[in-house]
Structure formats: structure tokens, C-alpha cells
């Protein structure tokens, strides 16, 4: 609403953004295009070699809407969607809250071994998960969690190093005077964290929530390794069902992909303001 750019610069900005956006948009366009083609169109015939990107072939004709219905029938979409949603919600809530608490500790509290412990936290991200997979699997099995959702939820309740690091970086930029003055007023550290730091950090909290959400949404290996009941699997597993050894029905894969990303796309589009504005808007009202 407060357009601070002149029309010329506005146009220029649009031009630059549009040009840059093309490569980012390409896969989506192609995905939707393929998802609407008949299967026989996907094996290009003679002289059609370059077809997927040729303009005349980008728009499918006839438009095969039925691919979406077919893909929905091929896997229990609703079951997967339910499982995925539950996993996502639980993981996002647990990961963001626990990470914020830990990050505040690392950012604004002084205690012995703070620096070495933080370096240790960073280091835990440096070892590839491939080699801790087996010991971790055996640990969860000893705990009796094999075959349940627990290995997929509980670890994120104890802070995610990536988010702790990111939030720490943001918490560190809050002016010390603000926190000091709150302390002078007699606020406890928990109150400062809850009532001062958290509200000021909505953008970074939202960013972490988004990353955790996407991670859980796309995670296909985790559920597959710890669960054995197809009724407990997630959408990412359902998506894998459309890939087969010798190339499968690309139309169905792409239709499934489109349905797979639609909720995420919508969510991001609707909430993207949060990542960059958050409380700032509220604040200016005051």
C-alpha cells in the first residue's frame, strides 16, 4: 500500500523478477503439463523428440483430467494425508518450541562451557546421518518404538540443532538494553523469553516451522524404515509408488506430485507474510 517505487523502477523490478523466475517456475509448469497428458503422448513419436518443451506440445490436447482421479485411486491418498498432517503438526510444534527455549539459553544466558557446548551442537550436524542410522535404529528398537510413530516425533521434542543455531543468530540481534531493562523491571528469564523475545521473533519462528514442516512432509525414508504398516505411511511414500524401475506412468506421477505440493504451495503462499513481517505490523499500531 505504501508504494515507494516510481513506476519506472517498479517496472524494472518486475522485469528482473520475471526473468529470474522462469527457471524456478519451469519444473512446475512441466509437471502440470505432463500431468494432463495421456500416457501415449508421453512416449514421444517420431519427430517429436524435443516435445516436452516445444510450445505446441506444452499444452496437452486432449486434456486428461482423469489422471488426477486415477492417481487418487491408485494409492489411499486420504490415509496418507492424515498421517502426514499429524506428523507435520506434532513435529512443527515440538521442534519450534523446544528449539526456541534452547536457542534462548545459548543466545542470552551466560553459563560455563556455553561456547564449547554450542560448538558441540554445531558438530552434531556435521556427521552424516548414514553412519548413525544403524545404531539409532537399534536404540529405538530397544526402547520398543519400532513400528510406532515415536521415532519420527520424539527426537524433535529435544531441539533441532539447525533451528537452535538459526534462532540463536536472531535472538542475538535483539538489543541488550531491552533485555536488561526487562530484567530491571523484575521479569524472570522465562518471562523475558515468553513475553519479549518470542513475540519479537515471529519471522524466524515461522521460518523454522516452515522448514520443519517441509522436512516432515517430504520425508519418505524415515516412515518407511520405522513403520511396517502401509496404513501408517505418508504422502511421500505414496508418491514413490508412482515411480517404477523402468519408468512408469509419468502422467500419474506428475498428477500425484501436483497434488502432493498443492497444500504446501497454498500454505506457503498464504503465510509468506509471516516470515518477513510478523509482529512488526502489530507493533506499528501501538
Amino acid at each position: 500500500m505504501n508504494a515507494r517505487l516510481g513506476p519506472g523502477k517498479r517496472l524494472l523490478t518486475h522485469a528482473i523478477l520475471i526473468v529470474l523466475a522462469i527457471p524456478f517456475l519451469l519444473p512446475l509448469v512441466w509437471m502440470v503439463s505432463t500431468s494432463l497428458k495421456e500416457d501415449t503422448q508421453i512416449f514421444p513419436r517420431e519427430g517429436e523428440a524435443a516435445s516436452p518443451f516445444a510450445i505446441d506440445n506444452l499444452i496437452p490436447s486432449p486434456v486428461a483430467w482423469h489422471n488426477y482421479a486415477d492417481a487418487l485411486v491408485e494409492v489411499p491418498f486420504l490415509t496418507y494425508l492424515g498421517n502426514t498432517t499429524v506428523l507435520c503438526v506434532l513435529n512443527v510444534v515440538c521442534a519450534v518450541l523446544s528449539s526456541a527455549v534452547v536457542a534462548y539459553g545459548f543466545a542470552r544466558l551466560r553459563f560455563r562451557f556455553r561456547e564449547p557446548l554450542f560448538v558441540l551442537l554445531l558438530m552434531t550436524m556435521a556427521l552424516p546421518a548414514q553412519v548413525t542410522m544403524i545404531p539409532q535404529f537399534m536404540l529405538f528398537r530397544e526402547l520398543g518404538w519400532y513400528g510406532t510413530f515415536l521415532p519420527l516425533i520424539v527426537p524433535s521434542c529435544f531441539g533441532v540443532p539447525l533451528f537452535i543455531f538459526l534462532m540463536r543468530q536472531f535472538f542475538l540481534t535483539i538489543p541488550e538494553e531491552m533485555i536488561e531493562s526487562a530484567r530491571m523491571e523484575g521479569a524472570s528469564e522465562w518471562q523475558i523469553f515468553r513475553q519479549l523475545v518470542m513475540p519479537l521473533s515471529i519471522p524466524v519462528l515461522a521460518t523454522c516451522a516452515l522448514f520443519q514442516f517441509l522436512h516432515t512432509w517430504n520425508d519418505f525414508v524415515g516412515p518407511l524404515i520405522y513403520l511396517n504398516d502401509p496404513n501408517r505411511y505418508t504422502l511421500a511414500y505414496g508418491l514413490q509408488q508412482f515411480l517404477s524401475e523402468y519408468g512408469g506412468r509419468w502422467s500419474h506421477l506428475m498428477a500425484a506430485s501436483a497434488m502432493f505440493i498443492a497444500p504446501v504451495l497454498l500454505l506457503f503462499f498464504l503465510t509468506q507474510r509471516t516470515f518477513i513481517q510478523g509482529i512488526a505490523t502489530t507493533g506499528s499500531k501501538g
Binding site: 523502477k9 519479549l196 509482529i279 507493533g283 501501538g286
Partner: peptide, 25 residues
């Protein structure tokens, strides 16, 4: 002057105190 694309008054750190009061309220 009003054409600075990287200027956004609502982002101002200076309003933190205001916000703090608001949150308290």
C-alpha cells in the same frame, strides 16, 4: 528519497520498545 526499496519503516528496530509495551499491554 521515497524510492529506497530497502527501506521499510515497519521493520524498524526503534519501534521495539513500542512493541514491548504493546505486548505487555
Amino acid at each position: 528519497m521515497s524510492e529506497d526499496p530497502f527501506y521499510d519503516e515497519r521493520s524498524s528496530r526503534d519501534s521495539h520498545t513500542v512493541r514491548l509495551a504493546y505486548v505487555r499491554l
